[in-house]
């Protein structure tokens, strides 16, 4: 039996995200047309846009929280617009980690319980150890049993990153992750996000109007 050689770059070159001709119209409100773009597996990309350019709408479309009026979105070769609503919930839980502009948590649960929440809700095996390892990677292990409300904004955003990572998502979507942070925290959080996405081999898409990030990313799409 002979083994066929597969170059390691093959997987890297496969496209994680591919958007073509996406349009979205709110029932009572603005209509958006977004440029076509794609991102290779493991890539990191910035979607830049001013307020009102439909940044959050685009992120929600990518996350399958909204359905495009026109066009197609493929994540890891799956056309998300074709999935039924319950399949989509499952797909999202399994493959996508989302970080929002302001970090929100289940207030009644501790940091560590919030971190294992994606594992539980997406039906994966609950692995506290893994959640702890990620917390350690972000130097927040001492906050494990604290309610998230007691953390600073910067810490909360780091916990939100940890939560997005815990399920080993193929795709991490971040909506304005730095806009609420000062320069120091912003650059720390962005550094962390890029590092952690790389460590877990996830594709990172950041949607932002934050011009501070502009020069940090090679791959940018202006909306």
């Amino acid at each position: 039996m002979t083994l066929k050689y597969v170059p390691s770059t093959t997987r890297k070159l496969a496209r994680m995200l591919q958007c073509e001709g996406i349009e979205f119209t709110y029932s009572e409100g603005p209509a958006f047309r977004f440029p076509d773009f794609s991102c290779e597996n493991g890539g990191q990309m910035l979607l830049l846009g001013q307020s009102g350019s439909g940044k959050t709408t685009l992120l929600h479309l990518l996350a399958g929280l909204l359905q495009p009026t026109k066009g197609s979105i493929k994540i890891d070769e799956t056309a998300v617009e074709n999935l039924s609503s319950s399949k989509l919930d499952h797909f999202r839980g399994q493959n996508i980690g989302i970080i929002f502009q302001t970090a929100h948590f289940i207030d009644s649960l501790s940091v560590i319980d919030n971190l294992i929440m994606p594992q539980y809700l997406s039906g994966k095996v609950i692995d506290r150890k893994k959640a702890m390892v990620i917390l350690e990677r972000l130097s927040l292990q001492h906050k494990a049993n604290v309610p998230p409300r007691q953390l600073s904004v910067g810490e909360q955003q780091r916990i939100a990153i940890a939560r997005a990572l815990v399920n080993d998502p193929k795709l991490i979507l971040a909506d304005e992750p730095t806009s609420a942070l000062d320069d120091k925290n912003a650059s720390e959080v962005i550094k962390l996000l890029r590092e952690q996405a790389e460590i877990s081999g996830a594709t990172l898409i950041i949607v932002t109007h934050d011009q501070r990030l502009k020069d940090e990313f090679e791959k940018r799409v202006e909306l």
């Binding site: 996350a63 929280l65 609503s85 319950s86 919930d89 499952h90 999202r92 839980g93 399994q94 989302i98 929002f100 929100h104 948590f105 289940i106 207030d107 929440m117 994606p118 809700l121 997406s122 039906g123 939560r163």
Partner: peptide, 16 residues
């Protein structure tokens, strides 16, 4: 509300 929406984004089904 936000918390529940968040749970949905993390893969929680409607029935959950």
């Amino acid at each position: 509300k936000y918390e529940l929406a968040l749970m949905r984004t993390m893969g929680a089904s409607r029935s959950k």
